[in-house]
Design a protein around this nucleic acid. Structure first.
Lengths: 335, 335
DNA sequence: CCTTGGCACTCGGACAACTCGAGTGCTAAT
DNA sequence: ATTAGCACTCGAGTTGTCCGAGTGCCAAGG
């Protein structure tokens, strides 16, 4: 009754179920997997595993399938992740000739969805703070203006803001000149001080504070958090997908960026290691039949890549691919 | 044997089928729809309609369902489109307080997907040509540069380009000053001449031509064509959706922007009217079970909004909603 | 000539009965 | 602790039957 063998049995059940999508029985296990024991022994182990809540049987006279808890145990006991050479090469060639950040993210998410055959999710990297190169203000009608901030490391942020009250053309032009004088080439605390001084001048336009805030946010590393995904069709793929009626809610959750972002935020990872949420662990009704494998990348491991699929996914393979892409992204983002 | 009545029968079949998703029989038609004739007469008409290829029966002893050709005929005979007041109000309130173009497009696509309960598609508007306000160049590593163009009407375009050969900092800075001098405040032919003169100066940096081209394209109305969509979960909605195995390919087609763009391009519309592609008319395998309803909006009717759903969709309702949103967008885009 | 009521016929879907076999739990032997 | 054997369970698949919606055709009526 070695604890070790029971883990092996669990592993075999998970692997078998992922492969066939059908409950796996003791006999089949004893024959195909090379555990050196008979089906009866396996049955005994199964009884224990079931008592522990790691596996379950859908009907009385059917094989067993892993529970969420079972997958969790399986994942926690994975020793090493190996990524196929083909994948390794694919990552190199696919991502090497990307030009800008957009391009990198776009390619990554597509590649990852192909490698894992799941829905891939990539959060835009939060970039390091960098000096301001140019601030541009453009009138939008009489009540709004657009602020465009171009930073030294080639990020372009834009934001619309209300002017509050009509502003004369001269005041507007002067504001442009002044805010550039106050911010170009600066960053961090220095930039903050300079902008505060500018915005605080007597007789200053009323919206100067808002402009200053925008410039500062932009310099600090980008504004909005964005998430892109690809490979949604994998959800519907026959054989490997979910039940038909589950996929609608999942698509909704994906389109609802907020949900996705919150979920990713919750997945704090230790080191560069891969983090996994299984089924109900996502704390989200629509995703209760799906799992998410995610890994952090970039400076301070502040952004995330991930793959989302049915709980019955190929965890080792997915984890390996996600980790590989995350590592590659880290390299690229840090130039 | 009036031709007119046969159209009425076809209409009744389409409406009935859209409503119930089940083949409709002559008896049911005679009873529920108020055509003033008996089931036998309807059967005769049905025989003719079937001969014309407008309807078909899935099994020998089942009711009839419309063919693509039948839907086409139905759509071509729609007289007037009425939009519910509730929808009208929704459009007003939902879209009125949008701030910039992104926001408008984003809101539109969500709203349309809700109104139609289909997948909504919105192509970014191609804006009118406008004067350049500022050009900024930013180095990316030693081999690339980012060109940012801000135009008078608050559009921001960016594009990465290869430098070709190393450029000194002084040459780079001078290029920035000069290209701004050559383009700020100009547009159209004037801008083109001015940029050509700048790029053609003896001893000019080798990438000046590329920068000039980027600036010009941007001024002429934006660079890339982009399409956004929302409401993909409607594809999976039980009861109103497609068969399970069709939805994967459709999701793929949607993610493949190129496919979508080509399709939209093909849908040249006459006037501000709504254009419909039914089933195989999309000329696209993956979409052979879906229909697209689209309408042009914006200057020169150059951009498109649309809704995509199963061929068995509510055409009049969808067409009305799409047209209403297109009209509203036209108003907004033209300020 | 078109419409209508009537009628024989078809055929898919639903239901019930039945079989088959994979899978289980338990017990006794090694 | 492991294994072989055995009785038992129960879902899936099969067959057969029945029912009714729906059809096509024909003959009668306006």
């Amino acid at each position: 009754m070695s604890e070790e063998r029971r883990q092996a049995v669990l592993r075999a059940i998970v692997e078998g179920y992922v492969e066939t999508h059908e409950p796996v029985g003791s006999k089949a296990l004893a024959e195909t997997r090379s555990l050196g024991v008979s089906s009866a022994t396996i049955r005994n182990d199964m009884a224990v595993l079931e008592e522990q809540g790691l596996i379950a049987q859908p009907h009385t006279s059917a094989g067993r399938i892993p529970t969420d808890k079972g997958y969790r145990s399986f994942v926690d006991h994975i020793a090493a992740l190996a990524i196929p050479d083909a994948h390794k090469r694919a990552i190199g060639t696919f991502l090497s000739d990307a030009m800008d950040v957009n391009d990198v993210v776009e390619r990554s998410v597509r590649l990852l969805s192909q490698l894992t055959r799941q829905v891939a999710v990539v959060q835009y990297p939060s970039l390091r703070q960098s000096a301001v190169r140019r601030v541009e203000l453009v009138r939008l009608g009489s009540e709004h203006a657009l602020v465009v901030v171009v930073s030294e490391d080639a990020r372009v942020d834009q934001q619309t803001l209300p002017l509050g009250e009509p502003t004369s053309d001269e005041a507007f032009e002067r504001a442009i000149t002044e805010v550039n004088a106050a911010s170009v080439g600066l960053r961090g605390a220095e930039l903050e001080r300079s902008l505060a001084e500018w915005a605080g001048r007597p007789g200053q336009v009323p919206w100067a504070g808002a402009v200053a805030a925008t410039v500062l946010t932009s310099s600090r590393g980008g504004t909005v958090e964005r998430v892109v995904f690809a490979g949604t069709s994998n959800l519907a793929r026959a054989g490997a997908g979910l039940e038909t009626d589950s996929i609608g809610p999942v698509l909704d959750a994906l389109e609802e960026q907020v949900v996705l972002l919150r979920l990713l935020h919750e997945m704090t990872t230790s080191g560069d290691d891969v983090s996994v949420r299984i089924g109900a662990e996502t704390h989200h009704e629509a995703l209760s039949r799906t799992s998410i494998v995610a890994a952090a990348y970039g400076r301070d491991a502040s952004s995330l890549v991930g793959a989302l699929g049915p709980t019955r996914m190929d965890y080792p393979g997915t984890m390996a691919a996600v980790r590989a892409v995350a590592r590659y992204l880290s390299k690229v983002v840090e130039h």
